[in-house]
Design a protein around this nucleic acid. Sequence first.
RNA 1: GCCCGGAUGGCGGAAUCGGCAGACGCGUCGGACUCAAAAUCCGAUUCCUUUGCGGGAGUGAGGGUUCGACCCCCUCUCCGGGCACCA
Length: 854
Amino acid sequence: MGEMYPFGEIESKWQRLWDWNGTFIAVDGDCRPKYYVLDMFPYPSGAGLHIGHPEGYTASDILARYHWANGYNVLHPMGWDAFGLPAEQHALQTGISPKLNTDQNVARFRGQIRRMGFAIDWTREINTTDQCYYRWTQWIFLQLFKRGLAFVDERPVWWCGALKAVLSNEEVVGGKSERGSHAVERRLLRQWVLRITAYADRLLDGLGDLDWPDSTKRQQIAWIGRSEGVEIDFAVDGSCGEVITVYSTRADTIMGATYLVLAPEHPAVKKITAPTHCGAVEKYCVEAARKGDLERTDLAKDKTGAFTGAYATHPLSGEKLPIWIADYVLPSYGTGAVMAVPAHDDRDYEFAKRFNLPMRVVVAGGGELPFCGYGTVCGSGQWLDGLECDGAKAVVLQKLKEKSAGRGAVKYKLRDWLFSRQRYWGEPIPIVWVRESDYGVLLGMAGSPYGEFLPEKPVCYEEAGEKFYAVPLPLEQLPLILPEVDDYRPSDCGESPLAKATDWVEAEINFASGQVRPRSAGGADGWVLARRETNTMPQWAGSCWYHLRYLSPNCLDAPVSREAEAYWGCPDFYIGGAEHAVLHLLYARFWHQFLCDIGVVTKAEPYPKLFHQGIILGEDGNKMSKSRGNVVNPDRVIGECGADALRVYEMFLGPLDAVKPWDSRGIGGPCRFLRRVWQLYVGADGGLSGTFSAAVEESDETDRMIHCTIRKVREDIELLHFNTALSQLMVALNHLQKLKKISIETGEIFLQLLAPFAPHLAEELWEKMGHGESIVRAQFPNYDVSKLSCALRKIVVQVNGKLRGELQVSQDASGEEIINLARSAESVIPHLVGRELADEVYVPGRLVNFVVRN
RNA sequence: GCCCGGAUGGCGGAAUCGGCAGACGCGUCGGACUCAAAAUCCGAUUCCUUUGCGGGAGUGAGGGUUCGACCCCCUCUCCGGGCACCA
């Protein structure tokens, strides 16, 4: 690469000026139309900015600058999703506090992002670990708590004794810990759970109106997994009086049921198992409990199971069906029990084969078993035979209802959200636990600051025979500040490191004031013993509502001020990685819908328009990673080519949503492009080049080129087709470079079109053209339709669909004239002579096609 | 296994209401400049064929619809993503 323009100087100059002038500060309540463009905020990792980050940020920045230049009041904020495991693990290794480490990482990220020259309103910067921020995360949690949407439950977790840690499913590989291959076991742990399932239908229905990528909507739909079916009751034989309720979406096959299967965890298993079968059943249950979700749901394995020795009565046929247990039935879905129809279900079929159970064909599908499709019911008795499956479902449901043996039911795959982590570096859950008797006192108190915060149904748990009740901290006591600790290792029994901060955990609470303090020696009047919750919130919590905090980052009495929410509403455009298609985007929708329910916000959906930028791969075509050694460092690229070149290159690489590899040589193109722009505009004396002059009258051709470029750039920005917009800008530059003289107006238009992509260079040249104000303050150019086309028009001539020539005709030439011209065109005649003309096709304004035979 | 998305020169990619395939950029080749090289500028660059003019083939493979298909339909291959015993 040869001599570049002084991009380093220019870029830092303009970054300083934008800052000093407050160029990109969004104005609350401004009378201009608002435009809110949001990036998924980054987790400030220790590795610094990745070359992938600027892709999405540049895209949103182009939109921000484009809208500023179109007269909008733009909000384009940035912040930090800074709680999370890596900082905690870093602390374990180095002893450096997560807070300090996070602050350092944030400082580095901020510096790197600033060097990209984004039009960000830095006065609204937020950080999820800031107590002024997490105060409101805690407040939202308490609102959920108050309405019964946050509760505790015993949930199985993986516990590794050697590591003294709770592990996630991903951290358990082949029944051993991923780190160190130690033994792991299932343990029940008291966990906070959010009742997201209460919002299942709304989360599903709300998708309808969203302008989101189809694949993301589909993923959310699949994740929620709504299904309609029936619950059917099967009475268990004998004196136990048990009824097994199964769930099925194929009631039409009910007469083909030949046995029942319960999940090993099903509560009825113990009660119904025949004494003769207890041994085998128990053994099977123990084995099933040992298996993890991954092992259990491994499709490759053979079906296993055990017979309980019990039978149930088919509600319609009266037949006795054997009851089995098998781990292919999941305890957490439906009723944890199924009626097996082996002739028409793959899994039941496999199981029946393995254990030699009978099959009965009840859907005529022809061919081999199992037949899982739809068809005509047969072998089910007169009342059902001959019906199509869909119709049969309704008839069966009716029959079941008559016999009080069944009912319609809707089930979801979506599970409630496990919301506690046994970690230090997260938002503390603002709850203390008190004894049953003390909770009774609280309930009886008039005018305590809690009254309205307590849930209708108390949240409690039992430990060593004693019950403990959850008491929320009142608003005045928030934020509950994360205490500093010396030791970031979890406790010996897998609790959060906070559990070891005894002085903090063992506390007392004053119900009258809501204050919590360390336990006093004597036990004072009005204070009761309390134990703090030591779990913290998952990293998702802070990102569930950050889009609201930007609107009024300093609001003291609500997560978001009413005026700010009324003015800014929701992001007009939200961009981030597709890896967040389900969890973040579902959790955030859940919280936002909830906040709408309680009147904090007025819109039900947080992100009406969403886009996923693609991934930038390493030069070797693989995902960038340290271990592969193919990571590209943005600092180095900025140092060598400048931020403008990096921005342009990333946008020129290909479609925004595509996965595309980095090519270190490829950036030379954008570098040369920007340098050629510089050389066109800047004269030998450093001022505006003499090529530009007010007195120039542009040629029609140049005029047409400019207006076509304006249109292309405008349309492409709105469609996010930045690669083709840049391509058009290159075409325009190639054209301008050939001109001896260029009008000032043309020169200005080109800079304005370039400005969203390469803002520093555009500002610098704009200044050289004599402007005192930022280029974003000048109205973005509009095109003149009358200047888009020329007097002559090209018509393509084909013979049998093959290109044989082209004509230049005037705009007003008739079809007949054009066909005659085409027929006599020199290059066309040889392909027509001696052949029979079968047809002439004329597509107005485009082409003529002669169809010939022989 | 199921559901999506994709496949275009040496490379990244353009072009889709069905109408000039290969815009723009990278790379490569040739030329200019230079003692020379780098950089820069100019030109060429899908493949085959032809001295040339031309001609032929061509958008993962095979078939179909059409005057005309990268684009629509059917079958298949490969790649990417998601889900994965959800009854």
